[in-house]
Amino acid sequence: MFGKAIRSELYRISRMKSTYILPAVLLVIVLVTNFLYMAVDLYGLMGLSQEQVENIQGMGTSAEGYEESFMTGFRAGLESSQSIQEEQELHILGEGPFYHESVPTIFNLDVGSLHEILLLSIFIGLYLGTIYSTGLDKNLNIFAGKRSLLYGVRMLLIASYAMVLHICTWITSILSAAFMGESVNLNMDRSFILYFFITWFLTVAFGSVVAAMVHMTRSKAAGITLGIILSAGLLSTLISVASLIIMKRFELDSDFNLGHFTITNNLASITLTSDGHFVVRAIVCALIYLVMSYLVGVLTVRRRDIS
């Protein structure tokens, strides 16, 4: 029964145009992002001297440290550019901040940009939403008494699709290194492999939440909207304010942040060099989201009549 369900659902996925369009879109988005970070001379545009650039690069160019170093550079650039702006020739293309970086670091940047979860949400919205917009499950009354199995199969395929997107991102990182970077340094060490699978797991957990949302609302729009809101960080201000309130109200440590318990924040923050505590917390949080959303989803489809 499991094999039949897999083959049937896999065939349906293979006939959906979005199955092929979304990885292509991801490839383009990631390439554009990498182009900006690798082939656009951002430091030069800011008017930074070689010494200032070296100081910034000393701060680290991992995705985690990049924001800090970028802002430092931006401030320094603003100061120096005011004095030399008119004398300097404008160079847009050149060595970007990630020009010298290895493939894993570029991949880290690309995963942290959350493009994958946005496109995965769209895929889930279309894949599961169609069941409700067309009533396709009416045809599958062979699984009438085995709806949990069908739910599980669909989640398994969503997890597989998340892996496809993840690999697609990695390949794009390699292509970016080859065409826009200094050299292709694959550097597939233990930390990269761990990072690869942990971020995939976090993506699957996010997908599970979106899937449960689609099943609960019977709407493809709900899943897609959730994906857009979370991947665009539209809730980050809300989370920051809520963190502050909770921190003050319960007199918690100053490093308390609700974002540490959200999948998207962890996915954006985790790096190749993140400490064990951070990684374990991210995995545990993702696991809780995954289990909870899976149970909610299964209970929803089991209890509901098919129409």
């Binding site: 039949k4 049937s8 065939y11 006939r15 045809n139 599958l140 699984f143």
Partner: peptide, 13 residues
Amino acid sequence: DNIKIKCLAHGIG
């Protein structure tokens, strides 16, 4: 394709 999706669920290819 519509029929094939259901056929595969019944183990018919």
